[in-house]
Each structure stands twice: as C-alpha cells, then as structure tokens.
Design a protein around this nucleic acid. Structure first.
Lengths: 131, 131
DNA sequence: CCGGATCCAAGCGGATACTG
DNA sequence: CAGTATCCGCTTGGATCCGG
C-alpha cells in the first residue's frame, strides 16, 4: 500500500499496528466517501437486486460508474455477485454479512450527521459570509 | 449543493429530509475520506498545535495541502484557528467540541476496520489472485 | 513563521457507442 | 440484460515560488 506513509507514522512514535490501521481507515473512508458507494449500499440494504434495478433506482448514475462501484465493493467482499446462466442474462448483487456490518458502522456517522448537520451548515454560512 | 441528486432521491420515494441526509453523509464522508483529514484530526487530538508542528509531525504533507485541509476543517467548524499578533507570527489549531464528537463517530469506523481488516485484505487477495 | 498563487500530472467520473 | 471501450472534462493533490 503506502509503505512510505506507514514508515512516517512509525517514525512519529506510532506502533506499526496503529499506523497500518490509520492507512486502512483512510483507505476505507476514501472508498465509502466516493460519489456512489453509500447510495449503492443503502439501495441494496432491503435485499438482493439486479444490475438494471440498481441502475433505475439510483437515478443519475452511469452504467460505467455503477459497474465500477459494484466491482470495488465486490473486491472488498462487501457484496456478492451472482450470475445466472439464463436467457436473457440475470445478475444479482447482495450485501454480505461484512457489508452489512460496515453499513452498521456507517450508521453511527449517519446519526452524527443527522444530529449536527445544522451546526455544520451554520458554520459554513458564517465562514463564507462573515469571512 | 446537489439539488438534482436530491430531487432524484425524492423521486425514488424518499422524504426530502432523508434525501438531504444522504447528501450530507456523502459530503462528510468525502471530506473525511480525503488524503489528509484523518491524519490531521488524529494529530490534533492530544491538544492545540501550530502550523509548523503539524507540518513536521504529518510527514509527507505539503504546505499547500495542510493549509487547504485546515481551512476546510475550520470552515465546517471542526477546528479553530487562533493567530497571535507576535513576531514571528504564531498560529494555533485546535479541535472544537464538534470536531471531537466527529472524531468519536469516526472511532466506530476505526474499530470496524481494526476488526475486519484481515477479512478485507484476504478478500482483495482472493479477488485479485483468483480472478 | 504562515501560508497564498501558480503550474502541472494523475485519477475520478460522465457521455456515448458498442458487445455477449 | 449486463456490461466494456473510448474519449474527455473536472477535481485532487504535489512542487515551487513569492508575500505578509
């Protein structure tokens, strides 16, 4: 991954274990924080869904980005991809237990945002307006 | 913000309130998930710190990105910036209560990563290696 | 000491067209 | 139906120089 950064963190007095954790946290946050991941995961929460169903329900996403996002989630083991040998083809995506547990962890952040969004909005207005 | 996306979410059957929450969640995750925010926040956790101290402790960050990251955090009200009229100039940054509460919310994600990082690493290896 | 201004490279994400 | 390929603009982030 980013061995240089890890070495830097260790040099700052961190244990290698803690440094690697920070790396991974940033990595996970970067993935979850991209444009579509949260929407895809929340859309999958009720149950398995097909590619086209996701494409219809997540209005505004392109086929390319839906495909990329699904593949990234699959790579991390957060969703499963099941292709059925039928005509026409059918592919279903579903959250794994790991994906569900991540969604639960993200829920804490969702709760934090719901609680403090007015604070943030006001802070931004003050900062932008008041200089 | 992204009025189009919000309209899309509402069209999907979401309440405007919930749609706005998802927007803000994505917004916060995007901010927190950038390259340096987590490191800056964790570095500030022990107490207030000067620009140069941050620059030294967060090895690898450029002055430009440190400045940008600090300003973004300040804009959201997550840190304070205190400039002292001295020669040479002295500026101190510190987490606000809001910033501290966000750090606590992020801690859940940190815990999740600590718990499941081996799973994720193995999933990626399987996916990359196994095709 | 603190950072703004400028320039530049890499990657994310969108539109469109095309396959099994 | 479920994607892949190509092209392209925009944003992120780094290097460097300059000002208060």
């Amino acid at each position: 991954m980013d061995a240089v950064l890890r070495a830097d963190l260790v040099a700052r007095g961190m244990t290698p274990d803690c440094a690697e954790t920070i790396e991974l946290v940033r990595d996970v946050l970067t993935r979850v924080g991209d444009k579509w991941t949260v929407l895809v995961v929340t859309t999958l929460e009720p149950g398995p869904m097909r590619f086209t169903a996701l494409h219809e329900r997540i209005a505004g996403i392109s086929q390319r980005m839906l495909s990329h996002t699904l593949r990234a989630l699959q790579r991390d083991g957060l969703i499963t991809r099941t292709a059925y040998a039928e005509v026409p083809p059918r592919v279903e995506y579903a959250l794994t237990p790991l994906g569900r547990s991540l969604a639960a962890a993200v829920d804490h952040l969702v709760l934090w945002v719901r609680t403090h969004r007015t604070d943030i909005a006001r802070n931004r207005e003050d900062f932008d307006g008041g200089g």
